[in-house]
């Protein structure tokens, strides 16, 4: 049986899929506004605008949930960088994706009580969650209440700044999501990580006396 805290508790799964749904909504409505043209009518501009704003506000709230969960519900410990993560961790993990994975080698950093993320994943999630996410949210709010903020940022009119920053920060965010969705298939089996993120690890398939115990989940 698994012991200790779960790596995929309910609150985390609810956050994650709400976040993913909101993010996709924001992506579709955001693209629709960015590439708006009279001849491109799938969703009305006004509707996009409204939905985008509403989803953005919700996403901000959910983001706070994730931050609180990391601070107070134990998830934060998976983000702690431990010795060996940077060197040789990054190279080992990159080598696995470039080489080992094709040869069917085992994951260099299997899950353990204190490890849910491999070193590369940890660093990318750190950047995404603690840099890109706040930047995306702040620039979004900048566009949401532009008249209540300073009228110039970094020598640009603030509108230009928020719009450009928001657009291209979120472009890289979307690239992350594409790669993220794909790397989600690189667990022990294609569906393993998806199953974990959906059903959690309390009743997971490796629960019942799996020889590898709780330390087998890999990403």
């Amino acid at each position: 049986m698994m012991s200790g805290p779960r790596a995929y508790p309910l609150w985390l799964r609810v956050w994650h899929w709400a976040n993913a749904a909101l993010f996709l909504t924001l992506l579709v409505t955001g693209l629709r506004m960015h590439y708006s043209a009279p001849s491109f009518p799938p969703i009305d501009f006004r509707v996009s605008h409204l939905v985008h704003n509403a989803a953005g506000i919700l996403l901000t709230l959910f983001y706070l949930l994730y931050i609180l969960g990391n601070l107070f519900l134990g998830n934060g410990r998976y983000y702690r960088i431990v010795s060996g993560d940077i060197s040789p961790g990054l190279m080992l993990q990159a080598g696995y994706y470039i080489h080992g994975i094709f040869l069917g080698r085992s994951h260099p950093f299997p899950h353990g009580p204190d490890r849910k993320f491999n070193p590369l994943q940890k660093l990318i999630y750190l950047a995404v969650v603690f840099l890109f996410f706040p930047a995306s949210i702040l620039t979004g709010w900048g566009l949401f209440v532009p008249d209540k903020l300073p009228q110039g940022v970094l020598g640009m009119p603030s509108f230009a700044f928020w719009a450009i920053a928001h657009t291209y920060i979120n472009f890289f965010f979307s690239l992350f999501m594409i790669v993220h969705v794909y790397l989600g298939t690189t667990g022990e089996t294609l569906g393993e990580l998806y199953r974990l993120m959906w059903f959690g690890d309390a009743h997971g398939h490796e629960e019942k006396g799996s020889p590898k115990g709780e330390g087998t989940v890999r990403a």
Partner: peptide, 17 residues
């Protein structure tokens, strides 16, 4: 070129970007 229309959602489009 950088500022071109940049303040306007939907016209923030910069061809190179």
């Amino acid at each position: 070129a950088l500022y071109n229309n940049a303040y306007l959602t939907g016209a923030t489009r910069h061809r190179w970007l």
